[in-house]
Design a protein around this nucleic acid. Sequence first.
DNA 1: TTGTCTGCAAAACATTTGCATACTG
DNA 2: CAGTATGCAAATGTTTTGCAGACAA
Lengths: 143, 143
Amino acid sequence: MNRTIDYYTELAQRGLQPSVQRVRILEFLHANRIHPTAEQIWLRLSPGMPTLSRTTVYNTLKLFAEAGIVQTLVIEEKEMRFDIDTSHHGHFSCDRCGTVFDFTASALSGAVPSELDGFEIRERHLYYKGLCRECRTKERRKG
Amino acid sequence: MNRTIDYYTELAQRGLQPSVQRVRILEFLHANRIHPTAEQIWLRLSPGMPTLSRTTVYNTLKLFAEAGIVQTLVIEEKEMRFDIDTSHHGHFSCDRCGTVFDFTASALSGAVPSELDGFEIRERHLYYKGLCRECRTKERRKG
DNA sequence: TTGTCTGCAAAACATTTGCATACTG
DNA sequence: CAGTATGCAAATGTTTTGCAGACAA
């Protein structure tokens, strides 16, 4: 089974033109569950596609977000991250190594507080920050 | 009772030099619970303090954040918001008017999932996005 | 007087925009 | 052929940095 074809048809079925760039970006997101930034995607794909521009990566990610293919995470200042897993889950961002971890979060599926009655909720995000296990160990060693 | 004096001593007690700029920014944050951006604070204070620079506003907010006087919200892309209320609560950001609302969120005080065992959690944020009551009504009127 | 704070100008950085060229149906 | 996608270069907007002068303990 050919994955490239899978993603090609996935895009086509959603009514999006399955250009080479879009298929490769979608492929990358499925294969690399690292909540990448646009820059990371570009850095990893451009060696194999020398003409790929950052603009296209940005355009494509915006398109994917609007189509509901990815969710956008604004957990850190400055750069946005993209998650191909659009299910409800929490995100932990390590202040030291920058890695973003997933964790299960039932709070995101529960009832909405009455203070928000009448509000239309489109997105729910639960973000934790701190030190991941590995970085915490390293910090302790240093002092 | 003189509020300016209160904030002056609050800063002094925390070991921060209570400069005119810092007192005014602290005062503004207490009086305007709007989760302002650095730019908003500068826009509102500079008419009364013509020499106030954006740099000072940024420096001061960073200082306040490090001192635990404010919490920083990265709910929206691009600009950071500052909240003088450092207690556990959720934030709702309206996609249309940009207003950030508070809501009670017990999920932020509960237990941490076992997936994060060994992690050091320093911050927890719950962000909702969508349309606030008022904007939802307006959207419906438009069709 | 010695270190810290302020504020200007310039830099840094992620993202967006304008537009010409290249695809694709 | 008509419409959409790509990609370069330039613009945008927020935040940071370098540095000189002002201020405070």
